[in-house]
Computed example of a mutant assay.
Amino acid sequence: MTPSQTSDLLQLTYRADLDLLVGRWGYQPDPVLLPAAYQHLARTAQDCGCSYWLQDIRRRTLNDPATTEWLLREYFPDMARRLGGRLRVAYLTSPSLLESIMAAPGFVSAEDYAGQAHGVAFFGDEGAAVAWLREQRP
């Protein structure tokens, strides 16, 4: 994936005022493009030392089950270790994608991550997502 392709797929902005890393996903990618995008996300998060992420996936229409499994089992735990033992990710989704995610077998609610190094939550409202991320701070 070229830098231009990465920026079209995922635009990252560190919001120092909120200590949030905001990722805006531009389109529904082919799953083969996701590893490079997530490597870019990892590098940026480490560069700014930010473990609170808002990921806007409203332009995506589905979640690839294999990618979701990899994120939950490998990527997020690894990123939590790299970022000092803590990672919180709030996903901002479209209503249809939110419904699909929550209805999927094995869906884990935000409350089920209590006490873990990483936590993930899904929202249909950006304000609620940011509020959740603020509540997650020690």
Rank of each mutant, 00 (worst) to 15 (best):
D112A: 11
Y27R: 07
L92A: 00
Q11P: 04
P35V: 09
L41Q: 05
T68S: 14
Q46F: 07
F123K: 01
G119E: 03
S51P: 10
R88A: 07
V120N: 00
D30M: 08
I101R: 01
E74C: 15
A117H: 13
T67G: 11
Q39P: 09
R58I: 02
H118M: 07
Y113M: 08
R24Q: 14
G85K: 10
A16N: 06
R134T: 09
R73K: 15
A129I: 01
G49S: 10
L87C: 06
G106A: 12
Q136I: 05
F123R: 00
S100M: 04
E74P: 10
L97A: 01
Y75H: 08
T67V: 15
D47P: 09
R82Q: 12
F122Y: 03
D17S: 07
D64I: 05
D19Y: 06
R82Y: 10
E135A: 13
P77A: 15
L18W: 03
D17H: 07
Y14M: 10
Y91I: 02
E135K: 07
T13E: 08
G85N: 10
S7A: 14
Q136D: 09
T61I: 08
L72Y: 11
A36P: 05
M79Y: 06
Y38L: 14
W53T: 00
P65N: 06
L12S: 01
A110H: 08
L34H: 03
V89M: 02
M102F: 04
S100T: 02
W53V: 02
E111A: 10
L83P: 02
L92D: 00
L10W: 04
D56A: 01
T93A: 13
A90S: 05
T68C: 12
G115I: 14
E135L: 13
D19N: 12
V32D: 10
C48P: 03
D56F: 00
L62W: 08
T44S: 13
P31I: 03
D47M: 12
Q136W: 05
Y75M: 10
I101E: 01
L9Q: 00
Q28V: 04
R73E: 14
M102D: 04
M79L: 11
A104M: 11
Y75A: 06
W53M: 02
G119A: 09
C50V: 06
A66E: 14
A16T: 07
S7P: 10
T67I: 14
Y27I: 06
L72K: 11
Q11I: 07
L41R: 04
Q11E: 13
S4H: 15
G85C: 09
A45V: 05
Y75L: 09
R43K: 14
T44E: 12
C48A: 11
L33P: 01
A103N: 09
R15M: 07
E69S: 13
E74A: 12
P65R: 07
C50F: 04
A129W: 00
L54P: 01
L97W: 00
Q136S: 12
H118F: 12
L97H: 00
T13L: 13
Y52F: 14
P65A: 10
V130T: 03
G106K: 08
P95H: 05
A16Q: 08
W132F: 02
Q28W: 04
D8M: 08
W25G: 00
T93L: 11
S96A: 12
P77G: 15
S7M: 12
L133I: 03
A42E: 15
D64K: 03
E74H: 15
V32Y: 10
P138E: 09
D78V: 14
L34G: 04
S109Y: 07
A90L: 03
R24H: 15
E74T: 13
